[in-house]
Design a binder for these strands. Structure first.
Lengths: 328, 328
DNA sequence: CTGAAAGCGCTTACAG
DNA sequence: CTGAAAGCGCTTACAG
């Protein structure tokens, strides 16, 4: 049984006002408080062929990353007068129902590989407004992308470890398979090694999955295997937590025995001990910009095909810098 | 200009199949892949008078609290086959548009005072399915509530400080005005004082707003004013971060000079230094349960009018207990 | 089990 | 500026 109240319709308003419903429809913006009239969104959508809703597809709402992104998206969506419909997928495999799409939104924001490629292509083919975050589209697709300077960031991080702290055996923890952020970060890692004359050792690349538990497990394994290393680039900040745990458990001191650096600069990074050296990614701004580009598309305007956001090195203590050199 | 593709409708499917649209409608659940047919949600909603969507109204998506709640809500909503529409309000004052309501959802989940009381009453009067989280409804409203043992939790926390660590001048930082969680926590704080024969000092109650910055500011003020205290119950974990900062800046050691305890046990609490003693609230489960109760309402079934979730003391280091006594 | 038809509550050309 | 009317794409009694 479902809600079935007899609240007023546009016809009631028209009758009371002694005008036609067309007239009411035209002035509907000035909320008709008399009858507590709230226009049915469904009827509007059906008649106008627009939903006034933006959809967000995201894969992992668990970590510390999501609130930042959502904050930006929420704010910008609202100020543009749209509703926000959110769906979080566990993985990017085909679903029976399409939770978000052309049937219930005007456009979609898609975060990294949270939508299977076929669906992405289908939406693109029917010219459905789409903006990708942290993921470049397949060649034939001309979809705006908002992403960050992953490679630069990683390079800064690793170069800092090499130059300031003389580390040479640096572990890289990869993110989830196919995750573009991770691929670019690895590239930055490799280029930093190369430009400092350190040869790449595939034995130092392990899986961290941008996930605390997985990072913990991989770190333990590395330790068990007796692999030598003097630094860890954990891929992201969530994974750094797992690295900390494993190192502390093995009585390796951070940063003296092993320097650790993350990526993202989420809320907790400055508060863990030692404070985490990481890359600040303007995540909230990524969200805002994604919405802005989508609105352009919705308005039939041109959108920027690539927006690349700057990243910034945030030096704290986990790399080996001392607290005194560092801003509070 | 808006998206206006000519994708197939139910009529196309009916024609191709050589049956009536009524027949198609009946078997529509077996997704008609032939024409890539995706039923228009708006038309369905309009005709069936149900949206298949649950709305979530929340006030602060900034903190570390939201991801936990959302995770539970997301999971349960999806497994029940509903969509989730989210709106976050800055404050609970009247809005011109009603972002979420009977016009676009089948039922609403409302988190603490994120919806103005008039709107709450209006929805209740038209018998619209509603579940409140962390907020008891006005007397005349019979709306299911999911909340946690705030008072018990606070009492455990404060009693611990008094009994194990001999603290007697304990600051309490209030949450936002009218926030029920905060009111109950304050009550627990007072009862713990009382049962240990410590008289209540209103000078030790300050505003923390469940917010890092506000907590930081209040703590600084307390320090500037030269108020004496040997412990702080910060109201929640986010505020504890601000307290840490202010104390460290003033060179007061935690926990030796000042013990600090929080509430919620969010992700970062175990990782900050010193690790935060706090109350574990089953936030994800609050979200799940709220959805379950709402589904009952949607099905015309009886719902539990009050669900009170247990809280649990999590002892770490910031209260003065030593790491050795504590689980890793 | 199936089809014809009314109806959900709006918007929007179109005519006046 | 206003009204009559068609139409948005479905669902659901109702009749057969």
């Amino acid at each position: 049984m479902i809600h079935r109240n007899r609240s007023s319709t546009i016809a009631d308003v028209a009758r009371l006002a002694g005008v036609s419903i067309a007239t009411v429809s035209r002035v509907i913006k000035d909320a008709i408080s008399e009858l507590k009239f709230v226009p049915r969104a469904a009827a509007r959508t059906l008649a106008s062929r627009r939903t006034n809703t933006i959809g967000l597809i995201f894969s992992e709402i668990g970590g510390a990353f999501f609130p930042l992104l959502l904050k930006g998206i929420e704010a910008e969506t609202r100020s543009a007068g749209y509703e926000l419909l959110i769906h979080s997928t566990q993985a990017a495999h085909a679903q029976k129902r399409r939770p978000l799409g052309e049937h219930n939104t005007d456009g979609l924001l898609v975060f990294t590989s949270s939508l299977e490629i076929e669906e992405l292509c289908r939406l693109s083919q029917i010219n459905f407004p789409l903006v990708l975050m942290h993921q470049t589209p397949p060649d034939e697709m001309n979809t705006p992308v908002i992403t960050i300077e992953n490679k630069d960031g990683a390079e800064m991080l690793v170069s800092h470890l090499i130059e300031k702290h003389a580390r040479r055996r640096i572990v890289y923890m990869q993110g989830p398979e196919g995750h573009e952020d991770s691929q670019w970060r690895e590239r930055g890692y490799r280029e930093a090694l190369e430009s400092h004359g350190i040869s790449f050792d595939p034995g130092l690349v392990v899986s961290g999955e941008f996930d605390e538990e997985q990072a913990f497990a991989s770190m333990r394994q590395l330790l068990l295997d007796g692999i030598e290393f003097d630094a860890v680039f954990s891929g992201d900040d969530d994974a750094a937590i797992g690295v900390y745990r494993a190192l502390k458990m093995a009585n390796r001191s951070i940063p003296d025995d092993v320097a650790v650096v993350g990526f993202d600069d989420v809320q907790f990074s400055r508060y863990i001990s030692p404070a985490l050296t990481t890359i600040r990614a303007p995540i909230e701004e990524v969200g805002r910009e994604a919405v802005r580009q989508l609105i352009h598309l919705l308005n039939g305007e041109q959108a920027q095909s690539l927006t690349l956001m700057r990243t910034e090195l945030v030096i704290r203590e986990s790399c080996g810098c001392s607290p005194k050199e560092v801003n509070p």
